[in-house]
C-alpha cells in the first residue's frame, strides 16, 4: 500500500494500536492461538481414538498388534481420502453426494485400464476420470446456480448408472498383480494407501491454510457474495473444489480395485455417508466457511477404529452400524457442548 497520505495523523492524534495476542510478538510466525484451538478440537478426537484402541486392546490383546493397528489405518485410508476431498467441497458451503458413485466409476475404469495399460497409467486414468466427474459437478453447479445438493444428487444416480454400464453390469476381474502391488503394496512395511492418506492429509491441511486457493474457499463458504464483491473468482474456485473431490474419489476407486483385486460397480453409497460423517466429526461445518483436513482424517480413523474394534469383539455388522451412527451423533454433541462453553 502506497497511500502515504492516509497514515498522516489527524488533528485528533490517531494512535496505532493493533493489539495481537498477549505474550506473543506482535507478528509471530504462526497463528499460535488458532493453531492451539484447532489442535484442541482434533486432540479431542485423538484422545477418543486412543481410548478406544486401549479399550479394545484390553478386551482383545491382539488388537494392539502393530499389524492389526496398521490394518485399521489401511481400512481408514479409502474413507479418509474421500473425506479430505469432501472437506474441500463442504468448506465452500456445498456438498458432493456423488463421490460414492464416482468411486464406483473410477474403480471400474481403473480395473479396465489395468488390463491394457501399465499400472501407473491406469491410476492416472482413474484420477482423470474422477476429476472429470468432479468437473461436471462443478460446472453444473456454478453455471446453473442450482444448489449442489440437487445437482450432485442427480449426478450420484448418473455416475452409479455409468459404472454399471461401463462394467457391463458385473464386477471387473482379472486385475494384474502389477496394478495391485502398485497401490496395495507397501513401503517400508507401511501399506501404500496409508502413505497416500497421510501425505494427502498433510498436503490438504497446508493447502487450506497456506494457499490462496484454501483462503478463497473459506471466504466463499463464509459468504460467497462478499467473496464475489472482493473480486474473487467464485465460480472457478468452487468448481475446482469439486474437481479435487472427484480426483480424490478417483484415487479411492483405484485403491479399492487394487486392494480387492476386482472392481465392483455397485459400491459407493456406504462410502459417501461414512466420508461425510468423518468430515463433520472433524469439525467441518455443513454450512461452509470452516473446516479441518486433519479433523476429517482423524474422523475417518475413528470410524475405522470403532468398526475394527467391534468386529474384534464379534459384534454383528448390523449392530456395528447402529454403534457407528450413535458415535457420530455423540461426537457432534460433545463438540457442540465444548464450543458452547467456550463462547
Amino acid at each position: 500500500m502506497k497511500n502515504s497520505t492516509l497514515t498522516a495523523p489527524t488533528e485528533r492524534g490517531m494512535t496505532a494500536e493493533v493489539v495481537t495476542e498477549p505474550g506473543v510478538r506482535s507478528v509471530s510466525k504462526f497463528d499460535i492461538r488458532g493453531f492451539a484451538g484447532r489442535a484442541a478440537r482434533q486432540g479431542g478426537l485423538l484422545v477418543v481414538i486412543v481410548v478406544m484402541v486401549i479399550g479394545f486392546g484390553i478386551a482383545r490383546p491382539f488388537f494392539l498388534d502393530s499389524s492389526n493397528l496398521m490394518n485399521v489405518l489401511l481400512q481408514s485410508a479409502v474413507v479418509g481420502i474421500l473425506a479430505l476431498g469432501q472437506t474441500y467441497v463442504l468448506i465452500t458451503g456445498g456438498i458432493d453426494l456423488s463421490i460414492g458413485s464416482t468411486v464406483a466409476v473410477t474403480a471400474v475404469c481403473a480395473g479396465l485400464f489395468s488390463h491394457s495399460m501399465p499400472a501407473i497409467a491406469a491410476i492416472v486414468g482413474a484420477l482423470v476420470i474422477g476429476a472429470i466427474c468432479g468437473l461436471v459437478n462443478g460446472l453444473l453447479i456454478t453455471v446453473t446456480n442450482i444448489t449442489p445438493f440437487i445437482i450432485t444428487l442427480g449426478t450420484m444416480s448418473i455416475y452409479a448408472g455409468l459404472a454399471l454400464i461401463i462394467a457391463g453390469g458385473q464386477a471387473v476381474y482379472g486385475i494384474p498383480v502389477g496394478f495391485e502391488n502398485a497401490l496395495a503394496g507397501g513401503v517400508a512395511g507401511i501399506p501404500i494407501p496409508v502413505v497416500l492418506f497421510v501425505v494427502l492429509t498433510i498436503v490438504s491441511a497446508l493447502v487450506l491454510k497456506y494457499t490462496l486457493f484454501g483462503e478463497y474457499l473459506v471466504a466463499i463458504g463464509g459468504n460467497s457474495e462478499v467473496a464475489r464483491l472482493a473480486g474473487i473468482r467464485v465460480g472457478q474456485h468452487t468448481a475446482t473444489a469439486y474437481v479435487v473431490a472427484g480426483a480424490s474419489a478417483g484415487l479411492a476407486g483405484a485403491i479399492l480395485t487394487a486392494r480387492l483385486g476386482a472392481a465392483d460397480p455397485t459400491l459407493g453409497g456406504d462410502l459417501l455417508l461414512t466420508a461425510i460423517a468423518a468430515t463433520v466429526m472433524g469439525g467441518t461445518k455443513l454450512a461452509g466457511g470452516d473446516g479441518s483436513m486433519v479433523g476429517a482424517a482423524f474422523g475417518a480413523v475413528l470410524i475405522a477404529t470403532l468398526t475394527a474394534g467391534l468386529t474384534s469383539l464379534n459384534v454383528q455388522a448390523f449392530y456395528q452400524q447402529v454403534a457407528v451412527g450413535g458415535v457420530i451423533i455423540l461426537a457432534l454433541l460433545v463438540d457442540q457442548a465444548a464450543r458452547a462453553r467456550k463462547s
Partner: peptide
C-alpha cells in the same frame, strides 16, 4: 452480508 466473511 456483503462485506465481511464473519468467521474469518
Amino acid at each position: 452480508h456483503q462485506s465481511l466473511a464473519l468467521d474469518m
